[in-house]
Design a protein around this nucleic acid. Sequence first.
DNA 1: CCTGATTGTGCACACGTGTGCATTCAACGA
DNA 2: TCGTTGAATGCACACGTGTGCACAATCAGG
Lengths: 350, 350
Amino acid sequence: MSGDRQKPGNGAKKKAHQVVTSADVAREAGVSRSTVSRCMADDERISEATRKRVQETAAQLGYHVNKIASSMNRRKSDLIGLVTSGLTDPFRIEFLDCLISQIQQSGYRPLVIDVSDPDQMGISMLNLLQYQVAGVVVTSGSPSPEVGTHYLKRNVPVVLVNRAGRLEGADVINCDNVHGGELAADMLLKSGKKRLGFLNVRGGTYSGNVRGEAFVSRIAPRLADGEISFTSLVCDSADYDGGFHAGLKYLAGGENTPDAIFCAKDHIALGLMDAARFELGLTVPGDLAVIGFDDIAAARQGAYQLTTVRQRADQLAEMTVERLRRRIGGDDLGDERLVLPVEFIRRQTV
Amino acid sequence: MSGDRQKPGNGAKKKAHQVVTSADVAREAGVSRSTVSRCMADDERISEATRKRVQETAAQLGYHVNKIASSMNRRKSDLIGLVTSGLTDPFRIEFLDCLISQIQQSGYRPLVIDVSDPDQMGISMLNLLQYQVAGVVVTSGSPSPEVGTHYLKRNVPVVLVNRAGRLEGADVINCDNVHGGELAADMLLKSGKKRLGFLNVRGGTYSGNVRGEAFVSRIAPRLADGEISFTSLVCDSADYDGGFHAGLKYLAGGENTPDAIFCAKDHIALGLMDAARFELGLTVPGDLAVIGFDDIAAARQGAYQLTTVRQRADQLAEMTVERLRRRIGGDDLGDERLVLPVEFIRRQTV
DNA sequence: CCTGATTGTGCACACGTGTGCATTCAACGA
DNA sequence: TCGTTGAATGCACACGTGTGCACAATCAGG
């Protein structure tokens, strides 16, 4: 028989139930292994007849291309690394949901990697490289410039989503945090509330900081006039509990208690609202106006009806994979910084 | 020089910036490639001195084992397939969160695969096999017996979580749906409510059906006495919106309107509550008692304070990976059906 | 000094695929 | 009939690793 480098004895049978390989298909269809490979890849140079015949025998034998071997040969897998930290942030979850769906639709597979421990970031991203990933999406943490150069050298595209970093050779996609902060400011100024506040997690996140700064500079004129006051509020965690405890702390009463709070993200706003309404007996928006950011699913629920700034997770995901695909396809784009438009959503909390 | 099967010419340099391989480390450290491989795997038979030396040169050159090549050679990767359908169900998200974290801690990597389209289930699971996955966790859909045998033949363990199927060679882990349904029934019987209902998604899910059936058989005696009545309620989707619309439909008023509803899952219960409270002006638990199932994070929030049956996502994940690890390790366990205990959580909705 | 055991390393093969290049074969024009 | 062309397919190599087996070296016991 033909075939390359066959075993010394006779390669007829080895184990009882071995996995079916391209060589098996080749033997069965009476062609060479190369032809099988080309048929599975829909190579142009294969005649229609043999292609059909080979694909049929392949299906009959239950042959599937071994992705690992393929990846090894081509030095590129169809995996896309998803760097995230836990599945707790609602908006990130919505984004990942869209992202996973779109990645899969593009013929890739998401390989999730958790960097809840920020120290692991560097080695985790390097480790990802060992899976021959076709690309990486970072939704948490900031890769160091060093890992950036590693990716650049290997020509593996990286997209940072809603992150600060400017990484060499990587795309950065953010929603329009500045405009969002301004929209929130405009709304609260119009509402007639006087004691404004901005609630963010202690230490701040990049997105939160930008939103807060835009908010503050927008209200600055009125602040200078003395018409209104502003307080910067801080919570311990960027989630429901953080917002809840912040509510207990800041809304207990007193002269300077804010009557309108812009929250860095919806999830915090929900906790804040619940503390105000169910623990302190305040009404929303009567005693306290609240604006969030993201427009997560829970913000639409009847129990909250949160007025907020919407960033669309599906569009964010779309931009991300579109960018990845083009870079994987070989388009040699320079680093770019893309901005997703936001939209003000008026509900019941202002 | 030594080395096996080196290139015809002189394999000194090929491309400008090639990726560093074990051969490079071997050359640099003055040992054979085999020794490098053994050093990276912490093989016992390597002397302490050379191991240290090799590992140092490896670190210095920035060498990392190529997982793809390794997987190919060992015909087993360190990937674990996670079969799910979208990131929309809150409890499943919490479970996946724990699962991903634990999988990673065990030295594996999660490969996510979305089967929102149930028709894709079969080929997706077969496709997964081509990545040489070490194991698979199914949290959505029901794999056919046929794919089951493929996995069995390849000796790749499968764990079904909160699913109906009894798959040959696979473990099935469920929370104690029966006991949960009974706990809910006991609670509502004690509450003094008379017109009981069970709300599940149209067509039903395995878990939901079991919970409902246990609920019904528990209340059966009192039902026979005529002391209470029971209605089976149906919503169009197993989420917040489904519960919400079901609330509008069933709670609009009339003689038979239920005054106590056991929901197949928390997420539905939240929508139901909001429809009752904010659309129909009912009070909870005054006009309507509600019990959920799962104890998702939102159930604990002030806006809901949902009385529910808790299944612990972290323990579920723990059982899952423990089971996977033992099977991957070679333990030859028969198919098993494990049950996770549940716990009644009393809050404000009954 | 000889024998056997133990320890540390190297050699060569195998894993399953993609692809550049050579080769075969039929068709076709002169 | 011969040379040329184009299409279709096979050959052989390479990808980077793990590991069984063989072999060298060291050592203990007689």
